[in-house]
Design a protein around this nucleic acid. Structure first.
Lengths: 238, 238
DNA sequence: TTGACAACATACTCGGTAGTATGTTCCTCT
DNA sequence: AGAGGAACATACTACCGAGTATGTTGTCAA
């Protein structure tokens, strides 16, 4: 499902130790993907474990064999969604390209990953909502704030890139915090209105990403560098 | 609660006929405000009617006397939230000010209303989520799409203002639809991270609104007109 | 071959919750 | 003054859904 687990340096961050039993990991992954779709369609608390099991053509037993509780399942889906984002974005933070170009490439990669993995991204949105609300147990609350930390570190990736670009290109950011929040708000907005077209949505997604990044960069007073889209040949897997 | 119901032309849009019994309307309004807070804190399906009743220091009977179902209550809260937004924004769409100035004033008013009435705004966000998901009965589905229509007409208010400003100031919008979606995404982003400070949050909210509108306007290639904030003397009610 | 364990399925409990049915109080109109 | 209804509270039902306890099947290792 285009969520290839290559050996990047992020594995230990998400605790995805390459387990010896292959089928076990596959089954778990199928549950995560199916659960992500259910959570997207019905929301967390409106989705029952039986719903996920039915979508899997299985029963609760299978899910509870892999996850301790419904909340645990949700957290695992959240982790996987964040992992997708990191794998898409983090490679572009390195290298010695100009800061603005790096920022633009990060943004395009993030935006496209967002549209390609809609289910997981909506779960991420629900995750922050759950955080603003009150979790049940203390352990869950701790795990949740750990997930929020991961998200914050992801947003910090963008914030640093924005500030680096601003410094290098002599842009004045009156409030870097609000600027980066607005920046990501634009990129993330597709979650609320985008739904993929038929056949090959890749061209459409690329065009939308280009529009969004152009808008977001203008907001901080920068122009979209044309080379920002030239790295996109790699994105044909499967 | 700073939701004054003056006689604007919007009343029939929301069916808030000025009923003769005063206490009835007040009680209903209290339920809506309390329900909005509960929905904000726990989400729709995680909030029970008994929760709302408890927060009201009352019982279910009171709520079910005014609303047929939990979904009806949610819809009423949604309507009230949209009404707040319309009352804040719509006055600035009229008049013969320059298009860009009108757009800026609408945006500032919208942004501040968003921060002042957090509870209702989060319910609005949940409403679109519910729409993307599947409602239960057919009647609810119809009502929900009616509410989405109201929201769309509200967004159309901004889209028209953006296009008018673009035309009048000779700005090139490569994709007006995405531009307006991004524009509103920036203004609405406070829902996810803003929480009011102590005492008088008005100055803080105004500063944030100024930042957001500046960012959003830059995204479409326009500069924030300084007169956009001069209308804000009226906002001291209660 | 067997025993042990993984990977499920089946069958059940039990607390919570939407909705209803029915009382009770107070006000208002005639 | 009394009849009727609005505005609730109380008591109850019926069901759903999270979690558990236990059974079943395959597999692999010794």
């Amino acid at each position: 499902m285009s969520v290839a687990t290559e050996s990047l340096g992020l594995d230990e961050m998400f605790g995805e130790r390459s387990s010896p039993s292959k089928s076990n990991s596959d089954s778990r992954r199928d549950i995560l993907v199916t659960a992500a779709n259910c959570f997207r369609e019905n929301g967390f608390s409106a989705t029952s474990i039986d719903d996920v099991a039915h979508a899997l053509r299985a029963t609760k037993g299978r899910i509870y064999h892999h996850f301790r509780s419904k909340t645990d399942l949700f957290f695992a889906v959240y982790r996987m969604g964040m992992e997708i984002n990191f794998r898409a974005t983090e490679p572009h933070t390195r290298g010695d390209a100009p800061a603005l170009l790096k920022l633009a490439r990060m943004s395009v990669a993030h935006s496209i990953a967002l549209m390609r993995e809609q289910s997981f991204q909506r779960v991420l949105a629900q995750g922050v909502a759950l955080h603003q609300q009150g979790s049940t147990t203390a352990a869950q609350r701790e795990t949740l704030s750990e997930l929020i930390d991961i998200r914050n570190s992801y947003e910090a990736l963008f914030r640093k890139a924005i500030e680096a670009a601003a410094q290098q290109h002599k842009i004045k950011l009156s409030d870097p915090s609000i600027a980066s929040k607005s920046f990501l708000a634009v990129l993330n907005s597709t979650v609320f209105w985008y739904s993929p077209r038929e056949d090959n949505p890749h061209a459409e997604q690329l065009a939308i990403a280009r529009e969004l990044v152009t808008y977001a960069l203008r907001g901080i007073g920068a122009d979209m560098p044309d080379e920002a889209l030239t790295f996109m040949e790699q994105s044909n897997d499967e």
